[in-house]
Nucleic acid binder design. Sequence first.
DNA 1: CTCAAACGTTCTTAATAAGAACATTTTACT
DNA 2: AGTAAAATGTTCTTATTAAGAACGTTTGAG
Lengths: 141, 141
Amino acid sequence: MVSSQLAANIKYFRKQYNWTQQKLADELKVSRSVIAKWENGDVLPDLTSIIKLSHVFKQSIDHLLGLNRYSNQFLNDFQQFYETKHDNGEVIDESLLSVVDYLIKNPPLKEQIVQLSQLTVKQQRAALRILKTTITETKRL
Amino acid sequence: MVSSQLAANIKYFRKQYNWTQQKLADELKVSRSVIAKWENGDVLPDLTSIIKLSHVFKQSIDHLLGLNRYSNQFLNDFQQFYETKHDNGEVIDESLLSVVDYLIKNPPLKEQIVQLSQLTVKQQRAALRILKTTITETKRL
DNA sequence: CTCAAACGTTCTTAATAAGAACATTTTACT
DNA sequence: AGTAAAATGTTCTTATTAAGAACGTTTGAG
């Protein structure tokens, strides 16, 4: 009940990699049966295993646990820093801060944005439309 | 040995809040003695307690554990700035700030990322794959 | 210097994760 | 559909280890 997402996420990410439970067990150096138990929510992985999971799946632990909160400490620092860089009165809005935090936890997404920024303006607009539709449709499911 | 930082961080954040071990224990609803053991690295908090710690201290779990995988490239001034705030040597990745600049100039994209972040992890992964494919294909034209 | 609050340690108990072995389900192939 | 093999789920036992209580030690304000 700590994190019902964890079980599902382990299974999900394992499948993303096309791994069997045995393969994942080998990666983490644990028995296969315990993987089954993690994925079924019978047992919570101990901290060592959670850290290993976050490594092999390249996910932040918070993400793995399905906790999408962010570090206010970091955001405060970022805001402070950013304001000193743009002390001409440019305003940062709240959502930018949460987006930044989100991107930090999702390097693959950040990388795509880098790629996106290198397209032509026209291509960027097209890609944005597709993204928007994708998200809208996903939410309707 | 999992994370020697955790012990120090618990103590550090507790002191930031000017809390006694007893106060923290009350917040987490655990005994005070176990807090002492956490802070001295004698014992690792279980997952439930770790999640609670990340809540009361408003820190991401990765941050609390002292795991920072975005460690190699950091924009120099932000790194300096950040290091003066946290002298524990944690880092953020370099392309982040340029991405931020890009997002500031593209509020619609920023808004889509906000939307994206509110989907389930699974949906996020799916959407990201679509975005990735979109960009890759666009570049081939 | 004192004593009270904060913190550290030891010992025991309880909780729970790990692994092995066995059972079931799913998949691939005919 | 039928079958064998691979993949996954479950049970039971053992071992690990965290939690709490009680006691000991340090620290700091006066």
